[in-house]
Design a protein around this nucleic acid. Structure first.
Lengths: 205, 205
DNA sequence: TAGATTGTTAATCGATTAACAATC
DNA sequence: TAGATTGTTAATCGATTAACAATC
């Protein structure tokens, strides 16, 4: 099978959210035309995206909602709970750990790391804040595979290196630094300043 | 001039950050080869991106750091201060308003709107929290052009509609909802759950 | 069967990369 | 001049969209 384009994966998560909502309503079938109308995507794009991950429909009828739902869960790995380590207990880090959308989708920030003595040993909304020095040990023990980096620019790469050595396989990086990771790991960057700057670029035209 | 691809704009903000740092060091020239090496981009991509917005170099020599810096500031609209309105004083909203990276790049969250009586009238880190009902008036008076939406899924479109009617031209949307905006406005979406889900998709392969 | 809609192929579009002519 | 590097053109790559054959 050919690999899923990143853009397709993003859309799959959106399809999944909407399809969950119609699953509740009990309709057994839904067409790509209706999905497109509701979510503002082209039906042909939806069919193309879904065809990457399986066959969930019947020609002339539509997609089986239940089957499609299961397929999306499976592909996206959302039929299970994921433990997430968060590095950086600053403003951004703390609020990310409190973000309800994560838990709702099966991601549990189960440990926070920081290097500030003022923060180490405290808990934040029930989650312990540990010394960054304990990171390799704790991450290995708990077999954590996903981490969020919310530390300043200057320590992002260093933190990433430790995470990688500890066995983390996927990183969501909020530091505005292009972290280097080896083959076989997944890195996603969210750079809040860049997003705002692209708005200001637009306004400047 | 042809329009700038969104991907190019994102990279320009990164180039700008690095070029600011070498401006401080005083070197008058820098080559695309060196920029590429430092920022992990292909030199040809950097030259292509920069050529969209002007000519900043001398063949055989490199780019003039100072000139390039000014060009990037100008294109990105970062030679000025931008006032930003934030809608939603929940966990995410409050921490976004506190995010130091915004101010550092010339974005000032100068007003927060919410609909919760418990929050209205308070201040958060020196910024007033106003009733969402006052949004049209305040945004028009202050001529605010950029807004951040950090409200729940269910009210995102409604909030966006009010913002647009009030004269906002560019929106950064954190609600996991595909907000519809008219032509001529700019919308950027940041969906934190989607990002984590794409990591989990990767781990599932 | 006729109408509908998937699943897939082919055409289009846009962005990245390589190549190189211009020129310092 | 010879060597270096920009700025630009052309080739490549990948994603989106339209078209349609398969089939319910």
């Amino acid at each position: 099978m050919t690999r899923l384009p990143e853009t397709t994966i993003s859309r799959l998560t959106i399809y999944r959210r909407y399809i969950k909502s119609i699953l509740k309503k009990g309709k057994p079938l839904v067409t790509s035309e209706k999905l497109g109308r509701k979510m503002h995507f082209k039906p042909s794009q939806i069919r193309r995206d879904l065809s990457y991950i399986g066959q969930f429909g019947r020609r002339g009828k539509g997609y089986y909602v239940r089957k499609l739902c299961r397929g999306l869960d499976k592909t996206l790995g959302l039929d299970r709970e994921w433990q997430v380590a968060l590095v950086g207990a600053g403003n951004l880090g703390r609020s990310l750990s409190a973000y309800p959308g994560f838990r709702r989708h099966g991601f549990e920030v189960s440990v926070i790391f920081d290097n500030s003595p003022a923060k180490i040993g405290k808990t934040w909304l029930g989650v312990e804040v540990l010394d960054i020095k304990q990171m390799p040990k704790v991450i290995k023990e708990r077999k954590i595979k996903i981490a969020i980096i919310a530390v300043p620019y200057s320590s992002a790469q260093q933190v990433a290196d430790i995470l990688i050595r500890s066995g983390v396989k996927a990183i969501l990086n909020f530091a505005p630094y292009k972290v280097a990771v080896p083959e076989g790991l997944k890195l996603k960057n969210i750079d809040l300043s860049t997003e705002l700057q692209s708005l200001s670029c637009f306004l400047t035209k």
